[in-house]
Design a protein around this nucleic acid. Structure first.
Lengths: 334, 334
DNA sequence: CTGTTAGCGCTTTCAA
DNA sequence: TTGAAAGCGCTAACAG
């Protein structure tokens, strides 16, 4: 496959390369109408598509950002991507999405790949496993914004949910419907993933605030694939929670699978509430109550921030973390 | 942000640019151990990351492919992406995923964008709205493979499900459990989307094969957002199907929403089966029986094919369509 | 074993 | 109103 270049177009239109370049970049100011037509003709005849990477090399920018999500499986990630896409589109910047799969190695390799491909900036859901790399990028003044999770100290702008609030909203809702033995289900927190940790803390705090004793036997924080096993073990014991707070959609799925398999009635026997909404929760039996993140706002603000950083290119030493207020959506599972 | 270049590394290590280039590309054959160490040192000190786009410009290839999915919402798309990713990784090629949102305009703009960014090839779930563009690319010998949907004539390799078989598997399953009035629900088929059309045809054929008359009142093919409305209308009539074939996961969701809202028991009153599996179907009530695509095989084969085309760069005039056999997964909804 | 050189396709002064 | 020339960061002969 032999690609058509600007030179080919120039030859065909019998003008110089630079004139074609002017044309391609819509700088018609000084261009004879007739020249314009000739070039247009040539472009169409040859099916010329400008080589962006040559342009980028020259301009030292690609008008492209990279987005690295922690795990694409979460419905939250998908919504965020949509929101970011919207503002990118409005600003004529492209975006590439990569999925770190909650794996710091993958995250790092994607960061390097995207930087090698000269993205102008990065939006990252940080796994937390690449502190040194973040810092070295910061030293080089490379624009990044974090989303969903924060790192300490917060050397880049960060946009995330008020997780404690989310947890207390959930626990309060459960308590109001007279549930007292409230369990928690979370996917693994071993990698110090802020939202999960904060939600667990928020859950504990909410219990304390209601003078309910924390029962560690009711708390499951483990790999997704082990959640059902842990629930089985809990089930075998003398007491079992009459309500659960699932810290995200994945843990909720596992929880529901377990509850269904045991034919436990929701909400009569066990109430359930989780963070993050997703289409399937409307058709689960019963439809699940959830704490929803203002995903769209978070995504939009993060995207606008990265574009601003790219333009201004002045990084502050430390940034405040921007927190967003969660919303309770009542359905029938509590 | 001022980027570190190969020249910077060369200066620091007191060698020439080309020597650094050798180093970066792991061509140590003739390199003095001591030089190697000095360069390594310099690379680390400066935090040098090679500029891929400069390299690509020179090499006239990016080792990157583009993937344009019709609609990322389908669970099928996600699984395909995973499968493609696997073979890319094994072959050290990067991949960029874009979502056409079932919109030919978006599809075209992504195609142009990716080609402008010099991807070496494209895997496309074609919307069917850009025939001219496909043909002009073909004329330029640009490597593409199609997935999930085909175009006529098949000028590029195509990998997709045996949709008629899928439909007949579904209908047979329904008939075997003594259901006779079998409805169909599909998202819009206006844009001539092969899988949906083929599944509708397959459904009709299967009914004919069983000497069951086709009742057009039982067939819904409309935009996702209108499905429930159409079901409502059907519901008001004298007769209502005792079973449904949903042609994909999205139409199934709508169908389930409707059935749930009417408190119609599945499968006692109405049986349900669909094409495409997805995690939420295990926790729906009851767990849904589905016709599963061998997604992994399709993705792998498509990815291997595009890499082959890129290497050989010899396009045939016409390709056969590769069909894959669907698998019935029995759960409790039939 | 290492350096010199040309050039990938484009943009951008500056000159004509 | 258009063209010539330099150069973005890198690779790949080839020379030394």
């Amino acid at each position: 496959m032999k690609k058509v270049t600007m030179q080919d177009v120039a030859n065909k239109a019998e003008v110089s390369k630079s004139t074609v370049s002017q044309f391609i970049n819509n700088r018609y100011e000084y261009m004879a109408a007739e020249t314009k037509v000739r070039i247009e003709q040539a472009v169409n005849d040859l099916g010329y598509i400008p080589n962006h990477i040559a342009r980028s090399l020259k301009q030292k920018k690609t008008s492209t950002i990279g987005v690295i999500v922690a795990n694409i499986i979460h419905s939250f990630s998908n919504e965020m991507i949509r929101a970011i896409e919207d503002v990118c589109e409005q600003n004529d910047v492209h975006m590439f999405v990569c999925n770190a799969d909650d794996n710091p190695k993958k995250e790092k390799s994607y960061m390097e790949m995207l930087i090698a491909k000269q993205v102008d900036g990065l939006i990252i859901f940080p796994t937390g496993g690449n502190m040194d790399f973040y810092h070295s990028l910061k030293k080089n003044n490379f624009p990044i914004v974090f989303v969903d999770r924060k790192i300490e100290p917060s050397i880049y702008p960060t946009f995330m949910l008020d997780n404690k609030k989310a947890a207390s909203l959930a626990v309060n809702e459960l308590i109001e419907s007279d549930k007292k033995n409230i369990g928690l289900v979370s996917t693994s927190i071993s990698k110090s993933i802020t939202p999960r940790i904060e939600r667990v803390e928020g859950y504990k705090q909410a219990l304390i605030d209601h003078d309910i004793e924390i029962n560690n036997d009711y708390i499951i924080t483990t790999e997704r694939m082990n959640i059902i096993k842990s629930l089985e073990e809990m089930w075998k014991k003398d007491t079992f929670p009459d309500a659960f707070f699932a810290v995200n959609d994945l843990s909720l799925i596992e929880l529901l699978k377990f509850l269904t398999s045991k034919r436990i009635h929701i909400p009569k026997q066990v109430s359930v509430i989780s963070v993050d909404d997703s289409p399937f929760l409307e058709i689960s039996t019963p439809p699940s109550s959830v704490i929803k993140q203002p995903t769209f706002d978070i995504g939009r603000d993060a995207a606008e921030k990265i574009l601003e950083l790219i333009t201004n290119n002045k990084l502050k030493d430390i940034y405040e973390v921007n927190r967003y207020t969660p919303i309770l959506i009542k359905r029938a599972s509590v």
